[in-house]
């Protein structure tokens, strides 16, 4: 069944159809939020809110050539803005390694992956919000430039420029990060 048909069914109140949309998009919406709030609990709460809002207002959703994911990202973006408007005392990044560890069965792989993910995550967090979103949508969730441009309300050209700059920044930061890591290791040895 095509996504447009699933959306139509969900708009008619078919909860099973909406469940399928939920399964398809929950991870990427969760990641999108998680990178902004940096707290597992808050990310879960806000992800729940996003899909609840989507379910409640699905009848008002109109397909205008934009993908459904863009609509969800827009809801997520507004939800995060509201979250920071009401309370801005959440900087719980400590849950990340634990979270990654819980997903992987092999202990060595789990540790390695946790360190790698933590490293790249700490680098990404140093970028501005738009650059973070572009990299996440493009290289983690594999959205097209058009989808990203609709979600972030920017032109496709602007998205390409942001993406290019963000990648360069990440490269520089990773290299510096690596050098710092090597220095630390040398000093410790």
């Amino acid at each position: 069944m095509k996504e447009s048909e699933i959306i139509k069914s969900a708009k008619r109140g078919d909860s099973e159809a909406f469940g399928r949309l939920y399964d398809q998009y929950v991870s990427q919406i969760y990641r999108f939020i998680y990178f902004r709030v940096s707290s597992k609990t808050d990310a879960e709460d806000l992800t729940h809110q996003v899909f609840l809002k989507a379910w409640k207002s699905l009848k008002r959703y109109k397909e205008k050539g934009h993908p459904f994911s863009s609509w969800l990202y827009r809801i997520a973006q507004n939800t995060v803005v509201d979250f920071y408007r009401t309370s801005r005392s959440h900087q719980d990044i400590e849950t990340l390694p634990e979270q990654v560890l819980s997903e992987n069965p092999n202990i060595e792989d789990r540790v390695d992956q946790s360190i790698e993910v933590e490293r790249i995550h700490s680098v990404i967090r140093q970028l501005d919000e738009t650059s973070q979103s572009v990299l996440l949508m493009k290289f983690v969730d594999h959205l097209s430039n058009k989808e990203i441009s609709v979600t972030l309300e920017k032109s496709e050209g602007a998205i390409r420029v942001i993406q290019h700059r963000a990648l360069k920044q990440v490269r520089d930061l990773l290299e510096n990060h690596g050098e710092e890591g090597n220095h630390t290791t040398t000093r410790e040895a």
Partner: peptide
């Protein structure tokens, strides 16, 4: 860099949630 970024895909909500 892209390979590094793709590792972030491991960040997912817990199945119970």
């Amino acid at each position: 860099i892209i390979q590094q970024l793709e590792k972030l895909k491991s960040i997912e909500p817990h199945w119970e949630f």
